[in-house]
Amino acid sequence: MLEIRHLVKSFGSLLAVDDVSFTVSQGEVLGFLGPNGAGKSTTMKMITGFLAPTAGTAVICGHDIGAHPIAAKRHIGYLPEGAPAYPDMTPADFLDFIAHIRGFAGSEAKRRIARVAEMIRIADVMHQPIETLSKGYKRRVGVAQALLHDPDVMILDEPTDGLDPNQKYEMRKIITAMRLQKAIIISTHLLEEVEAVCNRAIIVARGRVLADGTPAELARRSRHHNAVRVSMAGLADPNIRADLAALPGIAAVEQVSDPEGDALLVLPRGGRPVIAEIADLARERGWTLAGLRVERGRLDDVFREITAAGAEPGPVAAAA
């Protein structure tokens, strides 16, 4: 539904987006991840036709945004960063304006506005000026606006930024509810959000795509993937660490101390599962285990490793 072809954007000598290409199909919720200033918003502004790319283009449902902007924009619902809306208007007037621009009038406009108002749960604030609404409601009005014409492609720039945990939960529920019929891109720097709503993630930094895969695939790149967390009494004993480290296929054994308590983290070589070996060893030595858990891998490790390329890849777990 959405195809990004070699997008490039430079501002003077600054290369903000550097040859970004990807496609998003129906049913996909793509998490667009990256540190601040990575070029996420700039990319979205080019896809939605707000900024003209220096090179490359985006094709939305077969319409090139550069050559046929009006046709392409009809298929897009866009929530710009910060969910801007006219502060003097009420959500009812604002949505009515959007409905008319989107080509709906009369009862059809009314029906669509009522539908999104119920879906996004803004019915009770429809007649208050937008400037008097809370952040959560403003953000919802922005989403309602993007959803009014039931677009095939939705582009949401930080849809949960600044919302409280309940509002975030609500927003994610809304996104999940509509994912099947649409191609959705969400930019965020919250990794929990990617795990909660996205079935695909792209990591960008300095304008380049550095990783592309499902959240689970990305997490697999983590050195913590299939690591085993062992908690037991007397784990400061160097013999225990040595025994664990002597097992085949073990890359390192680290002692960690975090809010969950003290534990040994056994990192396998190449992400191979090692829990069976560790369990056997524990039985053999008669250790009294308090806990044994396989880690899936941490998206934030992967994110940090990928986006901070060139910086020191120091021992993360020990410091944590």
Binding site: F50, K73, P80, P87
Partner: peptide, 11 residues
């Protein structure tokens, strides 16, 4: 207010 981004991405 940033509404220009909304306004000019409408069809």
């Amino acid at each position: 207010s940033g509404t220009i981004e909304l306004f000019l991405t409408l069809p």
